[in-house]
């Protein structure tokens, strides 16, 4: 990336459940156009960090800045403006199960745009076609496979052409080929929409295939222990834990 303009800045962030501190002193910058990976062992707080970034869980301390605006300190109106510019793909897809795929994708459009029903239908068809689900408009989430559900959820996340896309373990539970296709799709979207992507994952294949910046959360010290390009971290990191993680525990 030649234009390294900070898009999301996490400053001095501490996340806690009651008295239990999950992660402390998180400090990193996600640049515009990055595919930023949040990685770490199971249960170290990756998803919680994501929840703090997207506004589902207020941090115990610290700030999340979108460009210059501090998300948790700003007005609700400004907050919803920021949220409107983000799309989130949840771990389980989280499609609304009582609605068809078309209704799922059109809800954000109905909520935030003035498009008429005909235009909305067109946009919905386009988004579903982009993720390879053309013709599945009237299916319910329970009628399609897990991989298709993930892709449909991606279509919903992209409905408003967001500037930032968050992914929570996108390839969890997918077969290698579907996972690879999803990776390609994420790359495509980043390149064509110019979006910033923040992704929680521990799939090494996708980390190296698409990630160009990352943060490593360590469960034992309860803070971040490395930040930077995952490929560089694998080869050059001085922290044995980071190297072990990125090499599946194989030293070398």
């Amino acid at each position: 990336m030649d234009h390294r303009e900070p898009h999301i800045t996490v400053q001095d962030l501490t996340m806690a459940y009651g008295d239990f501190v999950l992660m402390r002193d998180l400090d990193f910058i996600v640049n515009r156009g990055d595919i930023f990976i949040i990685m770490g062992g199971s249960g170290c707080g990756k998803s919680t960090l994501l929840r703090a970034m997207v506004g589902l869980k207020s941090p115990a301390q610290g700030r999340v800045l979108y460009q210059e605006t501090s998300f948790w300190d700003t007005s609700p109106r400004e907050r919803s403006r920021i949220m409107r510019n983000t799309g989130i793909l949840y771990q389980s897809g989280a499609l609304w199960s009582s609605m068809t795929l078309a209704e799922n994708v059109s809800l954000p459009l109905e909520e935030y745009t003035d498009l008429n029903p005909e235009q909305i239908r067109e946009v919905v068809s386009l988004k579903l076609a982009l993720v390879g689900l053309a013709g599945f408009e009237d299916f319910y989430p329970s009628e399609i496979s897990g991989g298709m559900r993930k892709r449909a959820a991606l279509a919903r996340a992209m409905a408003l052409d967001p500037e930032i896309l968050f992914f929570d373990e996108p390839s969890a539970g997918l077969d290698p080929i579907s996972a690879h296709r999803l990776d390609e799709l994420i790359l495509e979207i980043r390149d064509s929409l110019g979006a910033t992507v923040v992704m929680v994952t521990h799939e090494l294949a996708s980390i190296f295939a698409i990630g160009n910046n990352s943060v490593f959360l360590d469960a034992d010290t309860r803070t971040m222990t490395a930040v930077g390009d995952p490929k560089k971290l694998r080869d050059e990191s001085s922290d044995p834990k980071v190297r072990a993680f990125l090499r599946r525990g194989e030293e070398g």
Partner: peptide, 17 residues
């Protein structure tokens, strides 16, 4: 409850609904 478990309610909240 199922919607909560399935993150569907989170999906609504983050959409500002």
């Amino acid at each position: 409850g199922t919607m909560e478990t399935n993150e569907e309610i989170d999906a609504l909240k983050t959409l500002g609904i």
